[in-house]
Design a protein around this nucleic acid. Structure first.
Lengths: 213, 213, 213, 213
DNA sequence: TATGAATGAGCTTTCATTCAT
DNA sequence: GATGAATGAAAGCTCATTCAT
C-alpha cells in the first residue's frame, strides 16, 4: 500500500486521517465502483467521521479526482521524464525492442504496485468528464509526442517499418494494455511466467512492425 | 436504430411502449451510464409512465440485463455459428489472413450498427456480476473453443508460427478490440479510411504471428 | 371451503369467476393480512384478470367488506334467529348451562368451518371503520339484547346469581372467545379434546356466575 | 406520555428528535395502524426530516419493533421479577384472590399508562412474525412458568380447585384481558367504577376456580 | 480540526385503479 | 363481461452534504 500512496502523495503533507480516507476510498471504489460506494462507508472504514471527508474533499467527486489524477500522471510519467527522453536519444537503448522491453518492464512494475488505482481509473474513465479531460491532456500533450519522437528516431535508425506512427501506436498500446489487463485484472490468480510472456509479446510486436519482417 | 433493435428483439412481440422504453434506456445509459440514468428519465423520454417500465422489467437492473445479454450473444455469434465453422474447415478461406479479414469486416459492421449497446456493455461489465457471468460463459464455452480450433487448423496448414494459442489470442483480440474502441468510441468523429486501417492492422498482426516472419 | 362460501353467498347468483376471486382473497388475506395482499396476487390465484376484480368490487376495500360483513352477521345469527329465541323461552333448555352448551357447540362448529373468515375479521376490525360500524350495529342491536333477554330469563328462573348482566357478559364472552382463539388460531395444531375442554369451561363459568355458588 | 416513554426508554440517552419520532409514531400507528401510517407523516408530526427517522431506525419495521418489544417485556415484567415471586412464596398474599387482586391492580395501572402502546401491540401482533417471536418467547419462558408456580402453590394451599393449570389460565387470562380491552379500547369513554368492576371480576373468577365452590 | 446528527432531494419500486379493446 | 397494458401517486429508503458543537 505504501507504494500506492507514493503515487498519490503530493508534495504537501497529509494528515493521518486524510491518508486513511484515501486508502479506504481506494479499496472500496476499486472493489465496488464509485456509485456503489457511499461516503459513509468510506468514513466507517477509515475510522473517521463522515464530515471529515468533506473537510478534505469538498465533494465526493473531488475525492475520486484526487485518487485518479495522479495515476494518470504517473502512468505516463517515464515517457516524458527528461531522463527517459535523454536515455532514448543518447542511445541507452540499442534497438526499439530494447526500449520496448525497458518500457514494458517499468510500466509492469508500476501496474503491479497500483492495481486498485488502475482499476478505478479504467472503470470510472467512462463516466466522469473531469477524468477524461485530464486523461486526454496528458495523452495528447505528453504521451503521444514522446511516442512519436521515439518512433521517428528508431524508424530513422532503420529499426521499424515505414508504417504511420498512428498505426504503430494502435498496435503497440492496446497489445500492452491488453496484456496488463489480462495479467492484473481478468486473471490475476493464474500462474504467470511474466518474463516469458513479455518476451513473447515483444517478439510478436516486433514481428509485426519491425524492419526485418 | 432498427438494426440495433434486431440485436435485442426476441422472437416474441414487444408492445410499442416496450420498444420505446428499450430505445430510451439505451440512449440514456450509453450516454451517461447506468447509475446516472434514472428510471424516471427513461420513462419521460420514452413517453411512458414510470410504472410501465416496471411492468415490463421488474427491476432497473433487469432492464440493463435485457439490453446487454443479447449483445454478448450476438457479438460472438458468428464465431460459433455452424456456418462459420464450416466455412473455416471447408477452406472457404485460403489463409488465416483471409479468415481474419472476413471476421474483422463482419464484426466491424456489427459494431458500427450497435455502438450504443457495446458502449453500455463495456461500461457496465465491471460492476454487474450478472453480466460478467453471461460474458464469461459465452467466452469460455463458445469464443475460446472456436478460436482454438481455427488456430490449430491454420497452424497445421502452416499459416501460423508455432506460438501458444493463448499468446496469439492475447495479441489478436486486444488489437482488434483496441482498434474498434478507438474507431467507434474514443475518436468516432475522426475521418477514417476504414478499409485501409483494417488492411494495415491485418498486415501487422500477420507480421507478428504469421509463418513467413 | 363450500361451507365458508355458504357463509358468504347472498341470495343472488355469483359467477364462477366471482367465487374464485372471493376464495382467493380469503385465503391470501387470512394468511398475510389485507395490506400485504395485492389485488394482482388475488387475481393471479383466482385465474382472473386484475380488471375483473374491479368489475365485481369497485374497490379493494369493497372486496374486504364483502368478505367480512356476512361473517359478522352469521357469527351472531343464532342469537337473534326467531327459532333460537323461541327455544330459549319455550324452555327447550332446562338450564342456563344447557343453553350455554348448545350455544358454544353451535358456535364452535361455525368457527371451525370459517377459520379464515374469522381471522380476517379479527385482524381487520381494528383498521376499518366500515367494519367496526357493521360490528357495533349487530352487537348492540342484536347480540346484546338477545343476551340480556336470556340472562334475565334464567336469573328469574333462579339459575344465575344476581350479578349485573354486563358483568356476566364480560365474563362469559371473553372466556368463550379466548378459548376459540386459542383453539383455532394460536394453537390449532395441538391435540385437543374439544368436548372435555368445553365441559370444563362451562363448569368454571357456571361456578363463577351460577346460583349454586 | 412521560410514563409511556419510561416503558420504551433504554438506559442510553435518546436525542430529543428521536423521542419526538417515537412519540409521533406511537400516536399515529395506534390511531391508524402501521400500514396506514407513512414515514413521511411520522416525520411531519415529529417536526423532523424523513431521513432522520431512518438514521435512528434503519427500517420502518425496525421502528415498530422498537416500539413494541419493550411493551412485551414490561407487560409481563412483574410476573417474573424476583420480588414478585418472593412475595408469593413468602405469603405476602394470604390467598390466591389477594394475589390476583394485587396483580390485576398492578397491570391495570400499567395498561392505563400505556394504552397506545398496547393498542399497537394487539393490532400488529397478527402481521409481524418478529413480534410474534418476541411475544412467544416471553410468554413461554417467563409468564407461563411463573403462573404455573403460583397456581401449584395455591392449589397445595387449598385455595384452588384441582383443575388443570392450562384450563385455569385459559379462564383467568382472557377474562382479565377482555376486561382491560373493553375498559381501555372498546369503551374507554364509558364511566367506569374500576374498583367495583375488578372486585366483581375476581369474585366471579374465584367462584369458577376457587376451592369453596 | 473533527464530529456526527440532521437534512431533503431524489431514487427505485409498488399497486389500486382505469379504459380501450 | 372480461381483459391486461398502462397509469401515476405515494411509498420506503439512500446518501452527499451541511453545520452547530
Amino acid at each position: 500500500m505504501s507504494d500506492m500512496m507514493d503515487t498519490l502523495r503530493n508534495e504537501e503533507n497529509m494528515t493521518p486521517k486524510q491518508i486513511e480516507i484515501l486508502k479506504s476510498a481506494i479499496e472500496l471504489i476499486s472493489e465496488k465502483g464509485y456509485y456503489n460506494t457511499s461516503t459513509s462507508e468510506i468514513a466507517k472504514r477509515a475510522g473517521v467521521a463522515e464530515g471529515t471527508i468533506f473537510r478534505h474533499y469538498s465533494t465526493k467527486k473531488d475525492l475520486l479526482v484526487a485518487i485518479v489524477t495522479p495515476v494518470i500522471t504517473n502512468i505516463s510519467a517515464p515517457l516524458f521524464a527528461t531522463k527517459f527522453v535523454d536515455q532514448v536519444f543518447h542511445e541507452d537503448y540499442n534497438s526499439f525492442a530494447d526500449l520496448l522491453h525497458a518500457f514494458i518492464n517499468n510500466r509492469f512494475e508500476f501496474a503491479q504496485a497500483n492495481v486498485p488505482l488502475i482499476k478505478i481509473l479504467l472503470q470510472e474513465l467512462a463516466f466522469h468528464p473531469e477524468i477524461q479531460m485530464a486523461y486526454k491532456r496528458v495523452f495528447t500533450e505528453k504521451v503521444y509526442p514522446a511516442f512519436n519522437q521515439a518512433l521517428d528516431f528508431y524508424k530513422q535508425k532503420g529499426d521499424l517499418q515505414n508504417l504511420p506512427n498512428d498505426t504503430i501506436i494502435r498496435i503497440v498500446v492496446p497489445t500492452i494494455l491488453g496484456f496488463m489487463m489480462t495479467r492484473f485484472i481478468l486473471q490475476p490468480d493464474k500462474e504467470w511466467d511474466d518474463e516469458a510472456e513479455i518476451r513473447q509479446m515483444i517478439g510478436v510486436i516486433m514481428g509485426g512492425i519491425g524492419a526485418g519482417s
